[in-house]
């Protein structure tokens, strides 16, 4: 009977990339994240779902120390990427963010040319030695972000002149130009139309052959489509974390079931 069941959605790696233990986040008096333990696999798309204010974006922002920039924000517990504690005082957050790229909800290209948008990261981190190498990084990044064909003849024109979906792919190209190991995406499609959304989703699926991708989304259908692992957050707790198919067909926790079936908001 068991062997007749549809297999879990294939993951390429069972190695965990990010290990979080007992993570707590406070914004002043507000206890935003409570004792989160999670192992995020390498070369896998992990989706965080949950109602607004549940802590999923907060947790995502812990993963590249974006919360450092918020006054009064305190992070406790341990988060390790490849067994290196990212909150160790020796870790330079700027270097960390080159390793852990991020794409935001609203496309936010720099007011520069398409080329410069992508070249910016490799330049400031000194990842290339000469113009030829930089050109190559820009081209491969744009190709991987599925934007090359549309952008190759207008690399000098401003990134802000692209359509919303193209801008978001430009931001993805910019994020992957520094060869990150983890890509964080905070609702990357919520400002896009369905076609652009489908392109980004297709892209996410391709990117997972190289990185561990963590995506926060309000669209449960999107989480179901793109991820192999899903984590459900509610009121600051990580309620359930498991294989995406299992979460959406047979969740173990009644709160997960209530949320995915549209019973609690």
């Amino acid at each position: 009977m068991n062997d007749m069941r549809i297999a879990e959605r294939v993951v390429d790696s069972m190695e965990s990339k990010i290990t979080a233990r007992g993570v707590q986040v406070f914004y002043g008096q507000n206890h935003a994240l409570k004792d989160v333990d999670v192992d995020i696999l390498d070369k896998t798309v992990t989706a965080f779902i949950g109602p607004s204010g549940c802590g999923k974006s907060t947790f995502l922002r812990c993963l590249n120390r974006m919360n450092d920039t918020i006054d009064g924000c305190v992070v406790k517990g341990s988060i390790k990427i490849d067994s290196e504690d990212i909150y160790d005082p020796k870790v330079d957050p700027v270097q960390l963010r080159a390793k852990v790229g991020m794409v935001f909800q609203k496309p936010n290209p720099f007011p520069k040319s398409i080329y410069d948008n992508v070249a910016y990261g490799p330049k400031i981190h000194g990842l290339t030695r000469n113009k030829a190498e930089l050109d190559e990084v820009v081209e491969t990044s744009l190709r991987r972000a599925a934007l090359w064909n549309e952008a190759k003849d207008r690399l000098k024109s401003p990134g802000t002149g692209l359509s919303g979906g193209q801008q978001q792919r430009l931001c993805i190209a910019r994020a992957i130009a520094t060869s990150p190991e983890v890509l964080l995406m905070d609702e990357p499609c919520s400002a896009l139309d369905p076609i652009a959304t489908a392109q980004i989703e297709e892209l996410i699926d391709e990117l997972r052959s190289q990185f561990s991708v963590v995506i926060v989304t309000h669209s449960m259908q999107q989480a179901a489509r793109v991820s192999q692992r899903t984590a459900f957050f509610h009121l600051g707790y990580l309620v359930e974390f498991g294989e995406t198919g299992q979460i959406f067909t047979n969740p173990k926790d009644p709160r997960t079931e209530s949320y995915i079936t549209g019973r609690i908001g």
Partner: peptide
């Protein structure tokens, strides 16, 4: 309605 979990079943 894209039912999930118990609703899907």
């Amino acid at each position: 309605r894209s039912p999930t979990a118990g609703d899907l079943r």
